[in-house]
């Protein structure tokens, strides 16, 4: 299963709810304002690192770059994808849940 999150974790609890209510082995894609949750050095870093132990985490690189960050600013273990990679994730997983 793929979960998508598009809200900044500093503004909304979408990422928190997503991580709480998703199963081990699932994939979580952060895009739009949710990409701020994938960055090193924030208060969220520990949460994301913990999630990486049981879930695969992805972040949409064009959204990272648009906002002034680069791939090297992303927490290690969080994989960057482009839109084609987003499409692949949706195709690979049986269902998609958007945490709007």
């Amino acid at each position: 299963m793929l979960h998508t999150v598009n809200k900044s974790p500093f503004e909304k609890n979408s990422l928190e709810s997503c991580l709480r209510l998703s199963k081990e082995g699932c994939a979580v894609l952060l895009f739009e304002d949710a990409v701020y949750g994938a960055l090193k050095g924030t208060q969220l870093e520990a949460t994301v690192v913990e999630a990486l132990k049981s879930k695969k985490m992805y972040v949409l690189l064009p959204d990272i770059e648009a906002r002034g960050m680069r791939a090297e600013d992303v927490i290690s273990g969080v994989q960057t994808v482009d839109y084609a990679g987003f499409v692949d994730l949706v195709a690979e997983k049986a269902t998609v849940q958007a945490w709007l």
Binding site: N6, F31, E32, P62, Y83, A84, F86, D88, V90
Partner: peptide, 19 residues
């Protein structure tokens, strides 16, 4: 809101991949 842009980019990428 960016969602229309994201949807467009996703749709375009899916079509270009042959979906």
């Amino acid at each position: 809101h960016q969602s229309s842009d994201s949807a467009y980019q996703f749709t375009k990428a899916a079509l270009e991949k042959g979906h």
